[in-house]
Design a protein around this nucleic acid. Structure first.
Lengths: 190, 190
DNA sequence: ACTAACCCTCACGTAAAGGTTAGACATGTC
DNA sequence: GACATGTCTAACCTTTACGTGAGGGTTAGT
């Protein structure tokens, strides 16, 4: 019975690509462009700790390790991390994602995998729509409350506001928005 | 830098008013209708524990106690609890609400209080709008991904799906939706 | 009086998603 | 070789919103 929580938003802002450190190992044709964890962090906006965590959860895996055991990732890791981020944004928990990933990898045979993927996304699409409607209702309520408050100082311009906390002016029309009523309800102790 | 999380939704469903236990103490005019914590719980869908918690956080306070120290609430408590719930739905944490309440009570003088209330709601209204836009983008992405997947089995009806995990059919048009690409990115260990 | 429901006050547990040390190597640069 | 950074592992810390007993009174009804 957990209710919806809509936390404050703040998009990570991919901190614009930094200087490629050890340029490119000119000579070796293919395995060029290996990134280390900090690079991933910079480009995805996630922290190193977060990326390590994803690995602990088997959501991500370094392509190799350096001699000194540094993790080395291919560029696909970027895709993966961003993907994780998007799923999170859509409301998946990391453990949800774990499941999704496990399912995908277990069904090495594709058809079921594709089906699953479609299922997951379809379901989430519906949830997202529902959530948006819900938000819209909240928006209306907020708007209504603000309108109500405006009324309050329209009918009693400016000055009388100082008495407004106890103002019964609106009490006659019993449609005090809940968002406003709640403020006053349940007064503090004696 | 916390990102948005949009948890699964599920509205509490106010479990339709139960039988008024000790009917109404016929005789005593005013202080009738005192509820005890379980009643509040039933009517708001919150748990008793939750209600106790709200009290610990100074968001709610019983109007009185019975001889045996049972908490007794007036009907305004219902309003208050529902109000708390709505604020939570809008993304306020309980500690946020604590602040709001404290602010409201401290400014016993009303004008600043009203202003504050308006401020809070105005801000939240904007956040909510932003969030909705964000969700809309996610919705589009989901839709796009699903469309993409449909393409996948339109061009290769049915059977070839079994090879689709490795299918490069779409790789030519480099617009693999991130939501789809992420699935495949970063293959598991060797 | 007896019983079934309630309620009281601690107080510790939990899940999520990392944050934050700490102590110790690794790398790249001058 | 010396420095400044960057990484490694391991392990404990943090916050949120309650959940879950334990141990023990309270109420209402019969």
């Amino acid at each position: 019975m957990s209710r919806v929580r809509l936390p404050l938003l703040s998009v990570p802002q991919p901190p614009l690509a930094e200087d490629r450190k050890h340029a490119d190992n000119l000579g070796l044709a293919e395995p060029a462009e290996l990134l280390q964890v900090g690079d991933l962090a910079k480009e995805t906006g996630k922290t190193v700790r977060a990326i390590h965590l994803y690995e602990e959860l088997d959501l991500l895996r370094p392509r190799a390790r350096s001699k000194g055991r540094y993790r080395l990732y291919g560029p696909d890791a970027l895709v993966r991390i961003r993907w994780i981020g998007k799923l999170q944004d859509m409301g998946f928990s990391l453990t949800d994602i774990q499941t999704v990933v496990r399912d995908w990898e277990e069904s090495g045979s594709a058809p079921s995998a594709m089906t699953k993927m479609r299922e997951v996304y379809t379901k989430k699409l519906e949830e997202t729509r529902a959530l948006r409607r819900r938000l819209q209702r909240l928006e209306h309520e907020l708007q209504a409350s603000l309108d109500y408050l405006d009324t309050c100082d329209v009918c009693e311009p400016d000055r009388i506001l100082s008495a407004c906390k106890a103002c019964d002016h609106h009490e006659c029309d019993h449609t005090v928005p809940e968002l406003v009523a709640g403020f006053r309800a349940n007064p503090s102790p004696s």
